[in-house]
Amino acid sequence: MKIKVIVTLKNGVLDPQGKAIQQTLNGMGFSSVNGVRQGKFFEVDVNEKDEAKAKIKVEDMCKKLLANLVIENFEIL
């Protein structure tokens, strides 16, 4: 079963890449862009048929490796 995870920077954590993307978009004429936050997307293929059990395993993986909880939040989709 494939479980999808999004990891994003917490609010208030500086995101220089997001800022650069926003400035570039503004420069390209997308003047309505107020901000961009860049994150990460994972698709984890777990050998598990029960979705709830798979998600519990992935949550553990997020806490231990996929996200750094000092600066990042994760969301299991």
Partner: peptide, 9 residues
């Protein structure tokens, strides 16, 4: 803590 990307990229 954590070491993030340099402020000036």
């Amino acid at each position: 803590g954590v070491l993030q990307q340099n402020k000036n990229i």
